[in-house]
């Protein structure tokens, strides 16, 4: 289904990803945007950054990005901070 998935992991088992440290079912479509939609993040959401396996996914690249079994996705936002 997904070019990056490893057949030895068993395609029949439900695939999962880790979103902000929490294990969740991978989107059936394999699309990053569908995963983000489950937590209310769309391309219009201001002040949010997405990292996929420790690499930044620029907003323009969200639509074309795919997530596969075991991928780690982080949703980051500005919080109160100083020095």
């Amino acid at each position: 289904m997904n070019g990056r998935s490893d057949p030895s992991r068993g395609e029949l088992r439900a695939a999962w990803v880790v979103l902000n440290g929490e294990r969740r079912p991978a989107p059936a479509t394999g699309l990053l945007t569908d995963l983000l939609a489950t937590v209310g993040v769309t391309s219009d959401t201001p002040a949010v950054a997405i990292a996929l396996n420790g690499r930044v996914v620029p907003r323009a690249g969200w639509a074309a990005s795919r997530v596969a079994q075991g991928d780690v996705i982080d949703v980051l936002r500005p919080i109160q901070g100083g020095t």
């Binding site: 937590v39 950054a49 949703v75 500005p78």
Partner: peptide
């Protein structure tokens, strides 16, 4: 200044 952290949306 702000910091950047993982926040559940």
């Amino acid at each position: 200044t702000v910091a950047l952290r993982r926040v559940s949306p």
